[in-house]
Structures are given as structure tokens and as C-alpha cells.
Amino acid sequence: MIQLLVLGDARMAQALVDYLTTLGIACELTQSELGVSVWLADEQRLAQAQLEVKRFLSEPNHPRYLEASWQSGRADARIDYSKGMADPVTDFLHHAGPLTLLVIVACLAIYALQAIGLPLFDLLAFHPTLAQFGDWQAWRYVTPAFIHFSVLHLVFNLLWWWYLGGQIEQRLGSGKLLILLLVGAALPNIAEFLVSGPRFGGLSGVVYALLGYCWVRGRLQPASGFTLPPALMGFMLFWLALGFFDLLGTSVANMAHLMGLLVGLLQGWLDRHHKPV
């Protein structure tokens, strides 16, 4: 089965399923702490079901859904209609796997330790010169991704990491997310060093890698369950363009962003036939 969407309102979820039933699209409901999931039983009807879900989300209170419940509603449904969404903390933890949470904790801890005066930048920053690329401090290819220079910088990156990394880890496991983290940090960091030198940091190169990966998987393999609203993808591309035109009013690792996006797009294309776990 394919998960179509998760709704916090169980009655709305039931109304959608009842309406899809009238169209001959068989679906099932399951309930968890996150909400009520709508699952498509017939994968051959995926395209039609997705169109109907989009229409439902744009007008969930349309009379057609209430009428469908009267026509095909089941008296034996085992959904607790009194149960809503979980609290925000539970919701946050439910979406994130162990690696997603570990990276969030690491970034927060490093930022806090730097704020109280510990000189972590010199330990975690990229290699100072090309001559040191081959030395034993291999962590420097990746660790600049964990360094942030402001609260806004930190929060922006961690929210995207949680949203995108959580999707990947939940569907493909921690191993795939770890690969994207390492490659999506190392290659963008190398590219940024070659353009601007070693004094940079932030998880945004990895974020763009995850962005490209989720977008490609969602486009080429809708059954994978990866969702990335077009408006969000458009916003991030617009943000990328603003950085290259130097319109953000601050120093931005533009090459890291671009290389991260290319890494994610390529890995998503290579994984286009892989099925989620």
C-alpha cells in the first residue's frame, strides 16, 4: 500500500476515504500518535488518487465528502474520532530518526559551546590550505557543516534538516541519510573552499542535497512517498539565486549550496528504482 497523506482530523480522513470509495478507489485508515494515515490499496489508481487528494485539501468542507460518508460510511470503522494530533514535541520526535536527532543535538551543542567561548572553529573548520588535503584530519571535510554563526542560521538549517532528513531516514533508513550527510557535506565543502577559502560553515550544503534528493525521488517515483511542495522547492531555488546575485546582505556559501543541490539530484536519480523500506 501507498501512504497518500496524514491528517490530524480523523473525521476528515474518514470522509476522504468514503469519497474515494464512491470512485472505486479502495483505501484504508490507520491511526498513530502523529494522526490518521490514508493508505491507497490499489497502486494502479495512484495518479487519480493523488489528484483527488489535492482537490480535497483545497476544499475539505465541500458537501461531496459529507454526502459520500452518508452513502458509503462504515459503521465498524475503528478510528478514535476524539483523538487529535499529538503534542508538538511528540510530533517532532516521531518525524525524526536517530541520525536526524543526533545531528540536531550536535549542531546545537557546538553552537552553544562556541557561544561560551570555546574555540571549536579551529578544530572543526575546513583544511586551511590545499597542501593539507591529504593529512590525517579527514573529519575537516565534513565538520564545517556543523558550525553555525548565528541563531537564525542555525534554526533555518536545522528545521530543513529535520523536515527533509526525517523523511529520508523514516523511509530509507539511517544508512542512506548518513551517505547523503557525508557526501552532501564533503563535496560542497571542497567546492566552497576552492572558491572562497576555509572560513565558512553551516549545514545548508547538506540541506540542498536533501532537497534535491527528495524532489527527484518524489517526481520520478511518486510511490516512494517523498513529498516536497513545489512552492518550497521554488523558494529554495529563489534563495539560491539571491545568494549568487549577492542580494541577501550577508556572506553566503553559494558554491556549497549549488554543489549540494547537484549531489542530491544525482543521488536521487541513481536511486530512482529503489523502494522505501
Rank of each mutant, 00 (worst) to 15 (best):
P188Y: 00
N189L: 07
N189V: 01
N189W: 04
I190C: 06
I190T: 07
I190Y: 10
F193Y: 14
F193M: 07
L194N: 10
V195D: 04
S196P: 01
S196V: 11
G197I: 11
P198C: 08
R199T: 13
F200Q: 09
G202V: 05
L203W: 03
S204E: 04
V206A: 09
V207P: 00
V207S: 09
Y208R: 15
L210K: 14
L211R: 13
L211P: 00
G212L: 11
G212E: 10
G212H: 10
C214Q: 08
C214S: 15
C214I: 14
W215F: 13
V216Q: 07
R217K: 15
R219N: 03
L220S: 06
P222V: 15
S224K: 10
G225Q: 09
F226I: 15
L228N: 06
L228Y: 08
L232R: 13
L232N: 14
L232K: 13
M233K: 09
M233P: 00
M236R: 13
L237S: 06
L237H: 14
F238T: 15
F238M: 09
L240T: 03
A241P: 08
A241Y: 13
A241M: 12
L242E: 12
G243M: 03
G243R: 09
G243I: 01
F244P: 02
F245H: 10
F245W: 15
D246A: 02
D246F: 02
L247F: 09
L248Y: 12
G249Y: 04
G249W: 02
T250S: 03
T250I: 08
T250Y: 04
